[in-house]
């Protein structure tokens, strides 16, 4: 099943939640919508599910106009951020719900429903919890039951809103792996929303980065990390050093000082220089594009993180390997191994 979204616009009062979003999702993909809160990612997900309606634009599921159908007829599995399990029903009845409310004409008989629920509980490895009630489950278990419930209706597509948002760090990591392998097993076109870049990069096979109701970049996890398309993406994903620079006549300047950086094809004007922390190589004083004094050093396993005051006055944080110990007071030269400059 493919999903296609064209020129989607949605406003809540004066707030523009979606500002012309175009997106194509291929069959069998596991796509992450990544962005800060208020970026419109959940709104996009809810519109695809039929829980919200756009002011303008198209939603096509498998090539058909989805906006002529409500959530009930779209056959979309939706996993809610807080799971929205029915508290008065056992785990079994929660999973069976979607099968029991089918129109009488196509409703399965009780034996088939029981077999199907059992199968789904096996799939999420929680068959032993069938008779429990939601308030007797841990967060991770609730999450998996919510997923089993959404899968019960054999959805054409699966949508997950912050699936791991309400879980603690350890459970979160386990569930990420589990979701990946589950997706591999059932192979349903899936979109999940997250504000956690690590989650998006680890689980998804394609990542959509959103900000302020617009899509900033669509690409594989490697793409968005290695070749960020915009200043926002560079700043949002991975830990970056960000320096305000001036570009004029093919020369990049930090303050007054020209930097030996390539500036071909860059428009003149105020710009931003982005360098990954670990892409800033440390050399002896006098070498490299920058010079600065080490203020403070802390060790994080294989790397040491140093706070360096540049000669122009800016303070940056860099991650260097531990082969050469830095000490507060050292003067060092810094050379960006890779960098990107964005206008604005």
């Amino acid at each position: 099943m493919t999903i296609e979204v064209r020129k989607l616009v949605k406003t809540f009062g004066s707030f523009k939640a979606l500002d012309g979003v175009d997106l194509k999702v291929d069959s069998g993909e596991l796509l992450a919508l990544l962005g800060p809160s208020g970026s419109g990612k959940t709104t996009l997900l809810r519109i695809v599910a039929g829980l919200d309606w756009p002011d303008a634009g198209e939603v096509l599921i498998n090539g058909e106009d989805a906006l002529t159908h409500g959530a009930r007829e779209r056959h979309v599995g939706f996993v809610f951020q807080h799971y929205a399990l029915f508290r008065h029903m056992s785990v079994f009845e929660n999973v069976a719900f979607g099968l029991r409310v089918q129109p009488r004409a196509i409703r399965k008989d009780e034996t088939t429903i029981r077999a199907r629920v059992k199968e789904l509980l096996d799939l999420v490895q929680l068959d032993w919890l069938a008779d429990r009630y939601p308030n007797q489950l841990s967060g991770g278990q609730r999450q998996r039951i919510a997923l089993a419930r959404a899968l019960a209706i054999e959805p054409r597509i699966l949508l997950l809103d912050e699936p791991f948002g309400a879980l603690d760090a350890k459970v979160r990591k386990e569930l990420r792996k589990w979701l990946r392998s589950l997706h591999h097993e059932i192979n349903v076109t899936s979109i999940f929303v997250t504000h956690d870049q690590e989650e998006a990069l680890e689980v998804a096979n394609r990542v959509v980065v959103m900000d302020k109701g617009r899509i900033e970049q669509i690409g594989s996890p490697d793409d968005v990390y290695e070749t960020p398309a915009t200043a926002f993406v560079h700043g949002f994903i991975g830990e970056s050093i960000e320096l305000p620079v001036q570009v004029a006549d093919g020369v990049v300047r930090l303050g007054e000082r020209p930097l030996p950086l390539k500036a071909e094809g860059l428009a003149s004007g105020a710009s931003k220089l982005f360098v990954r922390r670990h892409d800033m190589l440390v050399g002896p004083a006098g070498s490299g594009a920058f010079e600065g004094a080490v203020q403070h050093v802390r060790n994080f396993g294989p790397v040491q993180r140093a706070e360096v005051a540049l000669s122009g006055g800016e303070t940056i944080e860099i991650d260097a390997p531990r082969d050469r110990e830095l000490r507060a007071g050292d003067t060092v030269g810094l050379e960006p191994r890779r960098y990107r400059i964005f206008a604005g």
């Binding site: 409500g70 009930r72 807080h82 929205a84 719900f97 409310v101 209706i153």
Partner: peptide
């Protein structure tokens, strides 16, 4: 919680079924 009604709807329940169940 408004989500439980949305959950019921997205699982295919009619408004009446959501109300009763």
């Amino acid at each position: 919680d408004p989500e439980i009604e949305e959950a019921a709807g997205s699982l295919g329940a009619s408004r009446w079924q959501t109300m009763i169940r």
